[in-house]
Design a protein around this nucleic acid. Structure first.
Lengths: 135, 135
DNA sequence: CAAAACTGTAACATTTTTTATTACTAAATA
DNA sequence: TATTTAGTAATAAAAAATGTTACAGTTTTG
């Protein structure tokens, strides 16, 4: 998972919202994020798969928003990045012969799931437009 | 930051709570987590710095809880791990000449800070004893 | 039609972060 | 005194994230 996936995605979307009439090139966007244009195109591919943006190939091509920014919530964006809130798991599978090791991940998952609900409720209340209008 | 720091820490503390009368060795704990004992000792060093556990060196040494599990909240544990909830930042410093790039991190920080408050409130309501008694 | 400016991807390289190992000192106990 | 344990530093290995290069395919413009 790209650690800055959400940050990059929302940066892209904010730019697109700021220039609603233009197709922005991945190079232009990459210049604002200070990121490799290929990585920008990868995130855009994900946004396209969710029908949130549309791209035009060829000269003067680029990407623009395909939805109403007032109706796109940060929660939806968050979900599109496949990221989840949480505090991680130990890398290796814990010892199944230990009553704690056997069940720890299940209990952590339950805990993190609740976190996601709380944070999800927060993010649901913020639209891309809200976020972008802060700038 | 160790990605599973919180998970490891709470695993350790749960074990210590389950065996309140014993000094558990880092090797025993490592066996439950399936982690290198040196890493366990590092996390324990952090817990010691926060006066949550005490260790005894030498033969039959190990670590045990030094506080009342009913009074230690997951929020406190969370804070001891220096981890924060959030959805990351782009790795590189964004373009300061772009109005979006210039301010994005500040706005993300504000957003994440709110997340931390929400999650903190949740974790404050759960004690180590609560967590451990689930097992 | 040809050149230029884009997207879309795949393959590979590099860098950074995490995790693991080794090795050693010091302390406590039997 | 031998053994078992913590404490810690240094290093190695593995994994993950990020960056680069390359090139095919599209669209626009001259």
């Amino acid at each position: 998972m790209i650690s800055g996936k959400f940050a990059i995605t929302i940066h892209i979307l904010t730019l697109l919202h700021k220039f609603p009439n233009d197709y922005l090139s991945s190079e232009f966007i990459a210049g604002s994020i200070n990121l490799n244009p290929v990585l920008v195109r990868k995130e855009i591919a994900n946004l396209k798969a969710h029908h949130v943006v549309e791209s035009k190939e060829g000269k003067n091509g680029g990407t623009k928003l395909a939805v109403n920014a007032a109706e796109l919530t940060l929660k939806q964006i968050f979900e599109m990045t496949f990221e989840t809130i949480g505090l991680g798991f130990a890398k290796n599978q814990p010892n199944p012969d230990c009553p704690v090791g056997k069940n720890i991940n299940q209990h952590l998952e339950a805990l993190y799931s609740e976190m996601n609900q709380k944070v999800g409720a927060q993010l649901e209340g913020i639209s891309l437009e809200d976020f972008s209008n802060q700038f």
